[in-house]
């Protein structure tokens, strides 16, 4: 199974950050307007400025976050290895045991 490229991760993260930022900007812009009143330019302008700036910053940071954290980790490589060598397993443990998280291991 091929990993998507880093640019793909960046795009996906920025898209999700933009969505989150729009929602957060809407919520907090509304709160700010209700609490302090609109700044000059009226309600809609204040709200839209809030939403746009929040969406932009969230998209920037979440895009970079998913860009730099997108390398395949060791567990992923181990999983791929196990999938290729399914008959052997690893240390005589079945694959399901190895893929479990540490909490779930009762032994």
């Amino acid at each position: 199974m091929e990993q998507p490229s880093r640019i793909e991760y960046l795009k996906r993260g920025a898209l999700m950050g933009g969505a989150v930022g729009v929602c957060l900007g809407f919520a907090f812009g509304t709160y700010h307007i209700l609490r302090f009143g609109p700044s000059q330019g009226g309600y809609l302008s204040t709200l839209s400025r809030y939403m746009i700036s929040s969406a932009g910053s969230f998209a920037l940071f979440m895009g970079i976050g998913s860009f730099i954290r997108s390398e395949p980790s060791k567990n992923m490589m181990l999983k791929q290895y196990l999938e290729q060598h399914r008959s052997h397993g690893f240390a005589n443990l079945p694959v399901e045991v190895l893929e479990r998280k540490r909490w779930d291991r009762k032994f």
Partner: peptide, 25 residues
């Protein structure tokens, strides 16, 4: 997400990742 580290170590991983993300952004 099964590709993350097990729990005590993921704290270090997250701290470093968050630092890099904040610093680059």
């Amino acid at each position: 997400d099964y590709t993350r580290d097990p729990c005590p170590w993921v704290i270090l991983n997250d701290t470093g990742g968050a630092f890099a993300m904040g610093a680059i952004g």
